[in-house]
Every structure is written in structure tokens, then in C-alpha cells.
Amino acid sequence: MTEKNNTITNEVETRLDELFMEDDSAPDNVPEEKEQNSHKKLRDLKAAILSIDWEINDDIMSSLLHRIKALRKDYQNDRIIFMFLQLLEAVGKYIKTNKGNAHPTSIKLLNSMFYNLEKVIYDSTMPISKRKNILKTEIKRFKILKEQIVGQKGRYEIPEEYEQKIAPAEQEETIVLDQEVIEPSEPSIPVDENTRISAEIAAAVEQIKSVIQSEFNALRADLRQWMKENN
């Protein structure tokens, strides 16, 4: 080996020794181990989410939901993260039910939710207000998706059983984010809301029908008048 080679070798070795010194790295205490386990589960979830880009099938989606469930146990005392996981689960179940027919935004939303969940988990210095704001943004996106799905029912069919399946009945408490109160059943598409929307649509249809009828009546009257005049 030449002298020059020795120089670079020494430089690299020194740099690596500094970076990967094993003695003072993460001590094997229990909380850290627990955190590492959760981070591993998070990475597994990331792998499952990434594989949706590859293929959507029952195995992949079941694995994704299974991983979300495992994380929910770990973070049951952290309400913000728990809510994130509920949102992910709701969207995941929707995609599992609809697979390739799922609304295109749902997959984007799943990725965006996970991206923000990672940010919240990994940045331990993030202020609580920022965590809440990030969650609120995702909830808003979730609501928009729900509206889009309801608005395009038929094209992106929501199976009846889906609404029952995704209701997260496990959560018992109400989660308060600043002034906004989020009911436990938030990350689902509530039946009540659907009923309200259906009623609004029905009323609108009735109104349109009545306008068309009155327009036709006026046209018929005009036509009769015109025929009389020409006879």
C-alpha cells in the first residue's frame, strides 16, 4: 500500500471510529429499547405503505392494518399520535375494501398522513402546538376526502359495510385539540352525516324538479297561446 493510500485510509478510519464508536452509543435501558421497538414498527409500517405503490392486495393491506394496530398499542397514551394512527387505519380500511377502485386521493392522503406521523414521532423537540396543527391539517384533508367520496358515490363506491367497519369504537374519550373538539368517531364516515348529506341532496333535487316543472308549464302556456293566435 502506498503512503498516499495510507493517508486516505487513516483519514477514513479515524472518521468512522468517531462516528461509529460503540462504547458510548445508545445505552440498553428499557425506555430506549421500547422506543426503538416502536421505531422499528414505524419503519415496518413505512415499508407496507411504500409497497402499496407497488401493488394493492389483501395481504399487503392486512399487513398494513396489522402494523397500524401494533403501533396503536404502543402509542395509546399519546393522543395525537393515536389520532394519526386512527386516521391511517380508516383510510387503510377504505383502500383495502376498494383496492384499485379507491379514490386516488386516498393513497396520497395515506402517504401524507404517514409522512407527518413520522415527523411528529421522530422530532421529540416539536412543540405540542405544532403537533396539533399538523394533526388538524390531516383531519381537514381526511374530511375533504370523505366529502369527495360521498360526492362521487357510485364512481368511488363506498360499500355499506365499510361505514360500519371503520367506526373506531375502541376509543372512548373525546379528544380536545385547542378549541376544536374531535369526537372519538371522527376518522370514520359517520352515518348521520351521510344521512344529512343525502337529505340535502334530495331537497336540492326536489327544488330543481319544481323549477323545471314551472318552466315547462310556462312553455306549454306560451305554446298554447301561440297556437291560438295562428289558428
Binding site: 426503538q36 419503519r43 413505512k46 409497497s51
Partner: peptide, 16 residues
């Protein structure tokens, strides 16, 4: 990754 992620500040990506 598990041992040094606090120093190398990165993410591992795995598709399983």
C-alpha cells in the same frame, strides 16, 4: 440503524 440512528440521523427504507 438501531444502534447509530441518533448519530447518523437518517432513515432506513425497507420493502418487505
Amino acid at each position: 440503524y438501531n444502534k447509530f440512528n441518533h448519530r447518523i440521523k437518517t432513515e432506513i427504507v425497507a420493502i418487505k
